[in-house]
Design a protein around this nucleic acid. Structure first.
Ligand SMILES: NC(=O)c1ccc[n+]([C@@H]2O[C@H](COP(=O)([O-])OP(=O)(O)OC[C@H]3O[C@@H](n4cnc5c(N)ncnc54)[C@H](O)[C@@H]3O)[C@@H](O)[C@H]2O)c1
Ligand SMILES: NC(=O)c1ccc[n+]([C@@H]2O[C@H](COP(=O)([O-])OP(=O)(O)OC[C@H]3O[C@@H](n4cnc5c(N)ncnc54)[C@H](O)[C@@H]3O)[C@@H](O)[C@H]2O)c1
Lengths: 227, 227
DNA sequence: TTTTAGTTGTGAATGAATTCACAGGAAAAA
DNA sequence: TTTTTCCTGTGAATTCATTCACAACTAAAA
């Protein structure tokens, strides 16, 4: 009997693995495809087949969040898609800010998929005087000095960091101090943030190194995740 | 007794987890930092502390590939860094081609880190007549029609796909048919490749969705990977 | 109505990854 | 030389994730 179980909260603290969360994203995309193909229901078997997973995995993942299916029939496509959107929180609008309007930052600012998923990028920051004040896809690039006040003013919940590695920690610290709880980092560095802030780092060099490792070792090592 | 064990190959087939490979990349970066800070040796304890891992994890990861340390002393910084570079295959030059010279493709073509790690991007392909023949960072953009012959001519081992999702499978198929064994994909789609081809997909929307999930569920769910 | 086929949801079993715990060895201090 | 301190390498134990297997239920056919 933990202190947690004495609370009347409807959903007690459970542990959901990172893999399960990523698979929810995968199911969401596949459900959109199934929906467009006209399927009203889909079985765990079919969903699993399309994503090279096991039906049990699909059912177990979903069961962590509730009972969405009908025995003998499967899951209602549109409803399940909506349920997953709700679980992932992509049925609402998120306010996103981008720091660093360089090569990768500019690409991200032009990325349409984000907006489609409800991630509204409406603030861009840089410290380069030549960029500050200029317009990028309809968004004016602001001075990095205004970051704290702007994060609050625009109710930013998620910050994307796309500055050189040497400046990334400094930006992260400002975000944390301003109350940001979610950061997506593209700088190849291990940022330090408090445990109540979620940080995801996309490190493309590490992905390349994984490929390189596989090419070198595929004959003597059984590498997972291939295929 | 498998057919493998009858070969005289020094390293029989073992299973190395994806996490272990990623951590090798992480150790490599941290060793470079330790080296620059003047450390000649480093203990699993120190390495673990800097990456928020356990010392046992560090030792176990390294032990899959050999015994690199000295009891009572630790690991020799420079030597271990070199050993890991060799395991990951980043002590050699890899020939990389990029398909899709759009927003993200252009950013990747300008990315200096790749070259530093031995990933030489020397071919770019597109199907847009306005882009073909133009120069990007000293590399002429080639017609996508010439992809198969160019991959062979330039001994390309790794292909980076940065085209719209609708065209990505087509490009992957051409690469596979030409004998490519490693693909880094940026299109948000589940590409199908044979089991002897290693595919890594960087899906930024999924990373955003992970952040969104965390923001919605951090009070009732114990989400891993935060901190 | 009864039977048959199909599918979920979930405890139990299995498998994989991580951590523990300590023998074995190296260096430094006594 | 002997003792103490420190740290690796690794089997065993543990924790975590996946898969199995089946009761419970639905819909459709007989
Ligand atoms: N280019 C790529 O394809 C790529 C790929 C993966 C990762 N990255 C990483 O993303 C980051 C950015 O890379 P890039 O190629 O876009 O570099 P870049 O130099 O083109 O862009 C960096 C931008 O950040 C701005 N900046 C620097 N310090 C700042 C600060 N303190 N506050 C606000 N803005 C600041 C600069 O003015 C510049 O506009 C780097 O950490 C890089 O390693 C880039
Ligand atoms: N822009 C981003 O920040 C970003 C982020 C994550 C993922 N992505 C993904 O990366 C891919 C590219 O995105 P983008 O924003 O750079 O798009 P883009 O439209 O700017 O670039 C796509 C490029 O691919 C070329 N192309 C299209 N079909 C081709 C073919 N069959 N052969 C060769 N070249 C072809 C186009 O001419 C264009 O130059 C998309 O799948 C997108 O979802 C983009």
């Amino acid at each position: 009997m933990t202190s947690e179980s004495s609370k009347k909260h409807p959903t007690p603290t459970r542990r959901i693995s990172e893999s399960t969360i990523h698979r929810l994203s995968v199911y969401y995309r596949q459900l959109a495809i199934l929906e467009s193909e006209g399927y009203h229901t889909v079985s765990s078997k079919e969903l699993a087949k399309r994503e090279k997973l096991t039906p049990a995995q699909v059912r177990k993942d979903l069961s962590f969040f509730g009972s969405f299916g009908t025995r003998g029939l499967g899951y209602p496509t549109t409803e399940l898609k909506q349920k997953i959107a709700n679980i992932l929180g992509i049925d609402k609008l998120w306010h996103v800010a981008l720091v660093g309007a360089g090569n990768i930052g500019s690409a991200l600012a032009s990325y349409k998929e984000f907006a489609k998923q409800g991630f509204e990028l409406n603030s861009i920051f840089d410290n380069d005087q030549r960029k500050i004040g200029s317009n990028h896809k309809g968004i004016t690039i602001s001075d990095i000095g205004t970051l704290p006040e702007a994060l609050k003013k625009h109710h930013i919940e998620i910050v994307v960091i796309a500055v050189p590695a040497s400046n990334a920690q400094k930006i992260a610290d400002i975000c944390v101090a301003t109350g940001i709880k979610a950061i997506l980092n593209f700088a190849p560095i291990n940022l330090k943030v408090p445990s109540d802030v979620v940080l995801r780092t996309v490190n493309m060099s590490m992905e390349m190194e994984y490929l390189s490792f596989y090419l070198c070792n595929r004959h003597n090592i059984d590498v997972p995740g291939k295929g």
